[in-house]
Design a protein around this nucleic acid. Structure first.
Lengths: 202, 202
DNA sequence: GGTGCCATGTAACGCGTTACATGATTAT
DNA sequence: ATAATCATGTAACGCGTTACATGGCACC
């Protein structure tokens, strides 16, 4: 929901063409480490921004290969950008796939049919923990091996990954103990009530 | 990238129709707290799954209102699900919008044109910290006020939010000190080299 | 002569959101 | 009466990914 805004921000620093924008965004946002954007998306987004009148072409340049279409912010683009700066970033959707998987595994244990395909929440948990631990190790090595002249963003990204990784690890421990508690006293699986043929009137 | 799988998982527990699936998924995944899915998406996803032969209709039921189309897993659906269980969840794209905004603000300070629209990284940081702190406070209150009979997932979600919130808060502190360091010794803004009209041959 | 970077895009698809449309049942 | 809940979907759009197509230039 916001490559648009980042592009506007970059263009507010100076006019650029698509390739430059892609490179600049990748450097700025941490690339594959944090927010990987493919060139194609830059061009399509740019086209949409142009159609909305937020950017405009500021002359093309030709030096050998294909044309370089340079873009610049319009007045409306500046307004939109100012609005973005004024807004706080909305706390993101976590969309934690592991959590869903875990809850599904728990539900399976409690209500699952007797298929061979067993799913053990404990095993899931341990696999996740092992993977995270290794990743954490790698990040730590990378952070400690960073050249001090490297950009500020690189350092901050590593520190962030480590901070959240450690938090997640501690949370996984917590999950395990909660799971042990529940195993002694299982809980109900949430279900939706349906209308037709009511079974138990409350 | 994975409501598909969650729906397959729920259907493996028992056959359901769309509305039930939506309710079950919302209960399971933590709803707006973690992964909000609109009913429309359930229906379209279900249609796609059916088209791919992973689910099939298992009879309709009519009791008053519209038809209830009950879905069940097919053999191929079971295979797909087994595959999902076997895979580890890939470490998610963080896509941290705040980070991008911050880096952009820093770049602006170092290279920005002298427009009136100033963007202060420090102010951004403090606003973010204030917001996060309040949210953290709310979560803590909610966790402590939770009825013990509430589902396991609710508790875990709160604990997770708190753990990561605290980590983020500590990271923001770290960012601030790094920013102070940099202010004394600024770094270069990363740029892409262009081809035409080379300025400085390295 | 090949590899890789610079530079541009289009086409097609999947996921997700918003808005719209319909209509019955149940609780206030 | 009317509001909420149950129940189903379609249409259109935005964001993001993958794959494809084109071609010059620089370096080994």
């Amino acid at each position: 929901m916001s490559l648009r805004n980042a592009l506007l921000g970059l263009l507010s620093l100076k006019a650029r063409h698509g390739y430059e924008l892609h490179a600049a965004f990748t450097a700025l946002a941490g690339g594959a480490e944090n927010w990987d954007v493919k060139p194609a998306q830059v061009y399509t987004t740019l086209a949409r921004l142009k159609e909305s009148g937020l950017v405009a072409e500021a002359g093309t340049e030709q030096s050998g290969g294909p044309e370089k279409r340079r873009y610049r912010l319009t007045k409306r683009g500046q307004g939109e950008l100012a609005h973005w700066w004024s807004r706080a970033v909305e706390p993101g959707h976590a969309r934690d796939e592991f959590f869903v998987k875990l809850m599904l595994a728990v539900a399976w244990v409690q209500a699952g049919p007797p298929g061979e395909t067993r799913v053990d929440p404990k095993a899931l948990l341990q696999a996740q923990r092992r993977g995270l631990f290794q990743e954490l190790h790698r990040w730590t090595l990378r952070r400690d091996g960073l050249d001090p002249s490297v950009s500020l963003g690189q350092i901050l990204l590593m520190e962030k990954a480590i901070a959240h990784g450690e938090a997640e690890l501690r949370w996984l421990d917590r999950v395990e103990s909660r799971l042990d508690e529940v195993r002694r006293q299982p809980v109900a699986v949430p279900e939706a009530r349906t209308r037709g043929r009511p079974k138990n009137p409350t």
